[in-house]
Amino acid sequence: MKALALLAPLALIAAAWEGSVALFAISPFYLPPLRDVLGAIGANWQAYQAAFLITLLEAVVGFVAGGLVGVGSGIVFAHAPRLKQMVLPIFIVSQTVPVIAFGAIIVLWFGNTLAAKAAIAFYLTFFPVTVNTLAGMEAVDPRQIALLRSFGAGRRALLWKLLLPSALPRIFTALRLSAGLALAGAIVGEWFGAVQGVGALLLAAMFNEQIIALWAAIILAAAVGGALFALVAVIEARLLFWREEL
């Protein structure tokens, strides 16, 4: 049922793509037929599969690290208001610099490695997660905190039994958002000289005006984004089973 709900919109997009290309006689330069694009992917399956896995790995590493650091710093800020006042503004300022502005520096530092792309994905991920973890923990009903304290709960028990579970819905909202950002980070990282990955395929297709390859790379990017999002959704369904609206 769930798979069907997912497949139906995809089928609709595919039909609209094919249909409009045929119906409006769109030049393949602007929009090649979907079957040609899929055919190109099929013909070069191994290369595309490798690119998919590399970019997914880069994004996942950065995303997981960003998620952990984000939740961690959210917890620290919630417990240390002074530290929050000092450090959170630095976090905010760091986010005002577009990542592309210092992508080259990161590649300079880390070389053309997985770490460089993961670092950029991390940079885009940790901030929304930090802010939402903090907001989620600060939004906990003070009466609920008072109740646990009256049971004799210390900081640790409060954190694990109340604050963190209460903040989970917001944390996952941030993670869903960050999944897309992590992918963008990985692709941007690949633009600074990588020879492998979805970003590299995109650049190569663009420079060589291979329109079909360009669209194939776009579909590949969507597949990586979808995989990341699915990963988050599966974990979310596990942990937030108690939220009715899901």
């Binding site: 609920q144 008072a146 109740l147 009256s150 004799g152 089973f241 108690w242």
Partner: peptide, 17 residues
């Protein structure tokens, strides 16, 4: 007194998870 008397507030404050 924290942890020595059993306190029940007005709202049930049950944890949904």
């Amino acid at each position: 007194l924290l942890g020595r008397v059993a306190f029940m507030p007005q709202r049930d404050l049950l944890l949904p998870w």
